[in-house]
Each structure stands twice: as C-alpha cells, then as structure tokens.
Write a protein that binds this DNA or RNA. Structure first.
Lengths: 336, 336
DNA sequence: CTGAAAGCGCTTACAG
DNA sequence: CTGAAAGCGCTTACAG
C-alpha cells in the first residue's frame, strides 16, 4: 500500500500541490480558490484516503501540535487522573500529549525536559521537582510555553495552576478541632516544595489559633524512602507520641502508609484516631472505615492549565502570566 | 538561541555535511573517515551543544524510533505497571513509547491505531478489544511490527505474550477446593475475549473434575456498566445464591466491586466466603483482610513483548511469529 | 578519504 | 485565481 501524498492528489485532481495544501488546510477560501476546485480536491483526498504526514509538516512549520506533560508519578492516581483530563482537553484542541514521570528525581526531570525539547513539543505542563527551577528558566529563555501545576517556585514568574493548599489544610484542621480533637498530628514529607509547605502552614496556623500547636506533633517522612520505611516511621512516631487523637496526611501515599501502620498497631479509626488525607484514592473509599479526604479539583486544574498553555502557544499573542489558585473540597467520610 | 544544525558543524569544522552526518551516526569508521576528522567533528558538535533534529531524520529515514502502546485502561494498575516496564525496556533500546487507553471501546481503538500510524510509530504493542481483529490484520498488511499482550485472537497469526490464564484459574480453583470450599462462584465479564474465556474454562474444568460444577455459580457482569451497577449485580447474585462459600474474580476491577458488595452484605471474609481475584491491586493488599490474588507476571510479559517487537523491527530479519505463555503466581493472603 | 546533490512531504512567499 | 520553487534538517547513493 503506497503512501498517498499531496503530490498524488495534485496529479489526480489536476491542480498544483500548493492548491492542494491550501485546500486541505482550510485556507482555500482565503486564497480565493474556486468552490469547484476546493470540492474536487477534497473529494480526491477522500477517495485516495489521504493522511497528512505530520512529520513533514512539523519539519516545515516547526510546530508539532503536541505538548509535553511531566508529572511526579503517573502510577499515582492523582497524577493519572490529571493526565487523563489534560489529554482529553488537549485532544479537543487538536493537540497530542506526551507524558512521563519524574519520580521526583531532579536529574531525570532535567533529562525529560531535554528529551521533550528534542521531540519539539510546542509547550510544557510540568509538576516541577525541587531543583528544576533552572531548567524552567531555561525553557522560558527559549520562549517555550510553560505552565506549572500542583506546585511552583515562589520567586519565579511562570503561569501556574495549583490547589489552594493552605486553605485546604486549614479547614481540615479546623474541622478536626471542631469535632473535639485536641492532639492532632500532621504527617508531611521532607521535600520542602511549596505546596507541602503551605499544607503544613495551614495546619500550623489552625492549631496555633486554637492554642493546640505543638511542634512534636509533626512528622516528616523521607521522600525517597519506600513504603515499608514510611510505615515503620509512622508506627514509631505514634508509639512515641501516645495520646494523638487525629492525624492529617499531606498526600495520599502517606495516608495509605498510615493506614497500614494503624492496622499494625490495632488503632481503631475513628474511635482512637480521626484520619484525613490530602488527595483522594480508590483505597480510601474502599477502606473500612472509608477515609475522609481533601479532594483536589483535578478537572478544574487540568482545564485551566491547558487553557493557560494555549494562550501562550497562540503565536504573537501577548500572553499574561497567570497564577491560579483552585479551591479543594473536604470530603467527609467515616474516618472522623 | 539559534538551533544548531549539522550545517553549522560542517562550517565550523570545515568539512562537508555528509562527513558530519556519518561521524555523528557512528558510521565514520565504516566510511573510512580519518581519526582526526572524526575527533574534530565530535568536538565541534560537543562545543556547539548540537542536538539532532529527530523530525528531520524521521522524515528522511521513515523511522521514528518510537513504539505505540495501546492498553485497555492506563489508570488500571495492571496496565500502568505494564506500561512502565515496557517504557523502561524500550528506552534502554533507544525507543520512545506513546501510550493510550482504549477503554475497551472498539471505535476508539481503531482511531488510536490510525493516529499512531499517522505519527509513524515503528511498531505496536496492543491489548486488543473485541472487534479489533480487522485493524490488526490491516497493520500486518502494512508490514507494521505488532505484538499483542494480555489477549489475542485465536485464529490470527500474530506474535503475542499472555499469562497462562487457564492454568492460573485452574490452580486457584483447586486451591479453594483443597481448602474445603464446595460452592465456589466465578465472576466474569461479558466481553468474551479469549483471556476471559480461558480463565472461566480453568475454573469450570477444576470444578467439574471435583464434581462441584454448577452453571448457576457463574456470574457475568456487563463490561460497560459502571462500578455501582457491578456492585448491585454482585449483591443480587449472592443474595439469590446463598450458600456460596468462595468466589474467584476474573479481573481486579470486578474483585474490587465484589469487596464493596460483600461489605454492604456484611459477609465476613474468609469466614463466610473465601476470595481470590485475578491481577494484584494496591487495595487488595491494604484491605482487611488482605485479598489473595493470581498475580500476573508483568515484568516477564513486558520484557518479552518488547523483545518480540524488536525482532520484527530489525530490518530484513526474517522474524518468527511467537506465541508466549507466561505463568502467573498464586499469592495467598488472608482472604482464603 | 570527502563533497555535491537529491529527496523525504510538507508550507508559503512570490510571481503571474 | 493558480503554479513553480525554495526550504525545513537530515541521510545516503553517487562521483571523484
């Protein structure tokens, strides 16, 4: 089966290849090509089952109609949900999405950016890792459209869309306090990224306002440790700090490790301990009791991020840097 | 920042662009280019931070060094694990992977194949949906390398790598029988794909051999129904067929629906009911009690599939169609 | 041993 | 209203 090119169409329709190209790119009217010719070309293209060669057109135009999506871990449900919505949104606009996971590894993130640059993606949506600020500066210098999601660098002037982490954490903590909980722990990781800092700050402020704050109630888990190590650390922490009656996890994978720790310790939820975690997860719904979460507005984040990226990708438009905060949602289930 | 091309290197190194191309493609020696020139060209390329334009080279060679991976649902852990291993394997060999989900929708699957064809991927790894046989025939006619995973079409001569579904199901059923269970249910979907048929057949044969087979112990869930509908169907089935003392689920999403059904019905696992499911899942390990599974040999499947695909992609090599069965592993946890 | 040139399949400025 | 031609950045058969 021979590849059909615009040359074949031109031959068959007895017009020049430029005419074919104009018609197939819907520029026929603009170029004052006659209705009859337009119709003819379209029919021939249809008849021969013409499929444009995207590689050739990319080489010529320098555009690939693709965007690179770099997330932390595509096998984490939060990110795979995000990716799916972003992909759908992009497809509506005729863009293809290449996605890859950093595993929060800075070197790998940098490599991925290089490789996507080399694949000539037209724009980037990134959940940056800690040391990625330079690489992102680099993209900006290259005038590549970039939107960050889930987190960002406070000093850097780049569009980003994130949840209102401070508010989410603050309200969840207040909710626990109103429920009569007094000794509320906060389990975070050691990454120090802005979204984790804000989640911690929301908790700290709510605790301080209620006069309940104690530094010893905060546990920081090594980010790069495996799940068993996290479970062990949580067990150790709760054995040392008896009397804790509630806990807020700053991400779903910590919450999941926590549930396993509590099972080992035979702690009963919510009698002994109220539990709330950031980010929803299938296992939180299935768990007995089901676990309350601060659900991220995934759809809103994805749609907005694609929108901001498109704004930057439209040639010549003077785009504005936008920094968007989306509200999360406290989903109360049986665990509080 | 200007894009560096081989022309720039040629200019700077004072050689022709062909020489540059040969050197950078490691064909310098073969073309009898002097050591000195090779070194010079490499140094200049390094100095100018040359990055080859993959689009240009693709247009010229017709190869993209990429493979298309079509799975049923990338947000299902079985497929996302599979995808990760395939991606890693492919990367080792210098290939990039584009992945997409069919959602078991035949039209969408066909579309995805078209779109990957248009993106000029060099080969395909596919978990086919029911009506995809024609599309796959089409790929073969185009001489596109294809490997199927997880399932295949019995009459079609295509390389594939799948788990030994019959054996997995047969042993799991036998295990339940040896444990003293007598009224063992089997929950399958309505898709009728070969892997599901074989899982059912393994169960049926084991039951028949033990003289325990009853057709009424098999439930078929509508594939395209949502989770709540599946849960309702399972509840209905178990309310009608009282006395069932064990159940084997033919895929993880059915097992997960089942766990929710049993929770609603206050069935106690494993006292009232032993449970085993195909495919592992995070929630199966976290569940109280933890759920026994027939674990798929994901790494082996992925590695083998990439290997078979590469065999086909090496130009001119007369590749052989291989049909590979990998053994699954029965992981016994608390649910039996 | 190395270079000039054709060509992959498009898009688009230019000419008429 | 439509066509001839240049050029995107490579690879490779051919010439010398």
């Amino acid at each position: 089966m021979k590849k059909i090119t615009i040359k074949d169409i031109a031959l068959e329709a007895k017009v020049s290849i430029s005419t074919v190209s104009f018609v197939l790119n819907d520029k026929g009217e603009k170029m004052n090509i006659s209705k009859a010719v337009i119709k003819k070309v379209q029919e021939v293209a249809e008849k021969l089952h013409y499929r444009p060669n995207m590689i050739a057109s990319s080489l010529r135009t320098g555009k690939t109609r693709s965007i690179g999506l770099i997330v932390e871990d595509i096998s984490n449900q939060f990110f795979s949900d995000l990716a799916r919505v972003i992909e759908d949104e992009a497809k509506k606009l005729g863009y293809r999405v290449f996605y890859c996971s950093t595993g929060n590894d800075d070197d790998r993130s940098d490599e991925l950016i290089q490789s996507l640059l080399q694949a000539n993606v037209d724009g980037f949506i990134i959940t940056p890792t800690e040391k990625l600020e330079k690489s992102i500066d680099h993209l900006i210098k290259l005038k590549k459209p970039v939107v960050l999601i889930d987190r960002y660098f406070p000093g850097q002037n780049v569009s980003h869309v994130v949840m209102d982490n401070y508010e989410g954490s603050y309200s969840a903590t207040q909710f626990l306090i109103k429920k009569g909980r007094r000794s509320i722990a906060f389990v975070n990781n050691t990454s120090g990224m802005i979204q984790m800092q804000l989640r911690e700050k929301g908790y700290v402020d709510a605790m301080k306002e209620a006069g309940l704050y104690q530094e010893s109630l905060i546990l920081h888990l090594e980010y790069h440790s495996n799940e068993d190590a996290k479970i062990a650390a949580i067990v150790h922490f709760f054995e040392k700090n008896t009397g804790i009656d509630a806990v807020l996890f700053s991400a779903n994978y910590m919450g999941l490790a926590g549930l396993q720790a509590f099972r080992k310790m035979d702690l009963e939820i919510p009698k002994d301990l109220s539990v709330i975690s950031f980010d929803d997860h299938y296992s939180f719904r299935l768990h007995t009791p089901s676990i309350s979460v601060i659900e991220q507005p995934i759809d809103a984040i994805a749609v907005k991020a694609v929108g901001l990226l498109m704004d930057q990708m439209i040639d010549g438009r003077d785009f504005v840097i936008e920094k968007v905060l989306q509200k999360g949602k406290l989903l109360i289930r049986e665990s509080v």
